[in-house]
Amino acid sequence: MLSIRNLHAAVDGKEILKGIDLEIKPGEVHAIMGPNGSGKSTLSAVLAGNEAYEVTEGEVLLDGENLLDKETEERARDGIFLAFQYPVEIPGVSNLQFLRTAVNAMRVHRGLEELSAVDFMKLAKETTKQVDLDPAFLKRGVNEGFSGGEKKRNEILQALLLEPRLAILDETDSGLDIDALKVVADGVNALRSPERAVLMVTHYQRLLNHIVPDYVHVLAGGKIVKSGGRELALELEERGYGWLGIKDSDEVEAG
């Protein structure tokens, strides 16, 4: 489904990704782990089309088509979904209006009829329950005054409503207590299907206890330095990144 080949990307002229190769097939769940500053968030942003990042080399194909030629919104309509690490607020725009606009943009792209306000309300209310959000959240401004955990659950709510082909989760576990983590994980697990793939970017192993990945990749210095199965994550938890010859620097991640 998604082929990343020799991907290089830079921000403000500084190269962050230095040759990433990755194949993701439908139904698979991949986890990208790595220390701060390794380029994890940059990879998610580049795939989603954040224009602050410049692709300097390599290619990304989605179902054989060149993904990098497409605008952000076209990628989204083709099924790329990014759950943000720090979801931004849009004051005054209700979550409901925002979600309906997004869902209908997708539906039009897929040749489906737009949902009426009433039908969408029904669908949205049911889906909020799935991520343990009060339907009252639908009436509030997008992420406006939401707690960290509520914002993350709102991201998963969007993923469930938009039914992406590839869901990219950027540090979705950060800042969540164990209960919220479980709710988010349940939501992601509900997304899993034979047609759909998930790419999880995370610093910690604990998320992987709840969403069990098929593959784990370690990203360091802008490259994938090791790939393996579920057991690789456990090994990282036990031994840290040091045994791979990687320093877990505290420098702020560029992405």
Binding site: A48, E71, V88
Partner: peptide
């Protein structure tokens, strides 16, 4: 830019 990116990432023109 972040607001625009969020909207566009959700498929909105």
């Amino acid at each position: 830019d972040e607001q625009m990116f969020l909207c566009r990432q959700r498929g909105i023109d």
